[in-house]
Simulated assay, not measured.
Amino acid sequence: MNKTNPNTYLILVIFLLIINIVNYILLQSVLKAESLAQEAGQLTEQVNYQRQKYQQLGDAYKNIRGFMHDIKKHLFYIETCVNEEHYDRIIPYARETMSDLEARYCTVNTGNLVIDAFISNLMLRTARHNIKLTTKLKIDNDLVPCDDYHMTIILGNLLDNALNACLEEQSGEININIQTIEHTFTIYITNTYHFPIGEKPPEDIENLDFIHGYGLKNVKKSAEACGGFCLINYENGIYSVTVIIPEKKRTT
């Protein structure tokens, strides 16, 4: 063909070249569409996860307000018992009221609603699964550099991560240390985790996520957004995460 009609051969080559270019463009478009669909799916899951966490905060707040509203009725009843000299009714009623208070009120009171709600909720969940939980909370809420949005992402993901890891342990244990100290706001969480027999810890331990695959990525992003960073370590069956953020300057 190229001898009798070189123009036809040239057109054929150009046509094949155009087809290859079009195929390449279409392939890139398909890959990009799949990537965007995957990102959209992850964003949807993240939004749902955040909605659940905000729902927990809202429920905790409503629970506290509801109990404080009921306190007035309890006090009125006790006052009536005193006025009518029914003293024998006060002690059992007060005990029942205190039991209700302990069950409904946040058992943690740092002054930060996110921390109080999440730690209190974790106490109930660890007790339900016989997981040992120790906490050390020493913060000045005025110096906490995270707003509720980033605090929810950081603490919510870290606590869920630790809990899910311990669910696979026979004697799970979680340790939580949150402090404002030496001009930093620090969250240090450790939990026990032993890999199955014959399985070694991955080299990229920082990518080990016990929840939904992107929880720790969101923690790192929120920590960085607040001017801090996140460190992850695993040694001798102890998985630890440390978030360090410079504390907020005190306003005068």
Rank of each mutant, 00 (worst) to 15 (best):
Q38C: 07
Q38H: 15
Q38G: 06
E39T: 11
E39G: 03
E39H: 08
E39I: 10
A40P: 03
A40K: 11
A40E: 11
G41Q: 12
G41M: 08
G41L: 10
G41N: 14
Q42I: 10
Q42K: 11
Q42L: 13
L43A: 13
T44I: 10
T44L: 13
T44M: 10
T44C: 06
T44G: 12
T44A: 15
E45G: 10
E45N: 13
E45W: 05
Q46R: 14
Q46M: 07
Q46S: 12
V47L: 04
V47N: 02
V47G: 00
V47D: 00
N48I: 09
N48V: 09
Y49P: 00
Y49N: 05
Y49G: 00
Q50Y: 07
Q50G: 00
R51Y: 10
Q52F: 04
Q52E: 10
Q52P: 00
Q52M: 08
Q52R: 07
Q52W: 03
Q52C: 00
K53R: 13
K53M: 13
K53V: 02
K53P: 01
Y54M: 11
Y54W: 14
Q55H: 15
Q55C: 06
Q56D: 12
Q56H: 05
Q56A: 12
Q56Y: 04
L57R: 03
L57G: 03
G58V: 02
G58H: 05
G58E: 04
G58N: 09
G58F: 05
D59P: 02
D59E: 15
D59Y: 11
A60Q: 04
Y61A: 10
Y61N: 07
Y61T: 08
Y61R: 08
Y61E: 09
Y61F: 07
K62V: 02
K62M: 09
K62D: 06
K62G: 09
N63W: 01
N63R: 12
I64V: 11
I64D: 05
I64F: 05
R65D: 11
R65N: 12
R65Q: 15
G66S: 04
G66N: 08
F67Y: 14
F67A: 05
F67L: 15
M68R: 11
M68A: 12
M68D: 13
M68C: 07
M68P: 01
H69N: 06
D70R: 04
D70A: 07
D70W: 01
D70T: 01
D70C: 00
I71H: 02
I71T: 12
I71A: 10
I71Q: 08
K72H: 05
K72A: 06
K72Q: 05
K72T: 04
K73V: 10
K73G: 12
K73F: 09
K73D: 15
K73H: 13
H74V: 01
H74A: 03
H74T: 01
H74W: 01
H74G: 03
L75Y: 03
L75M: 08
L75A: 09
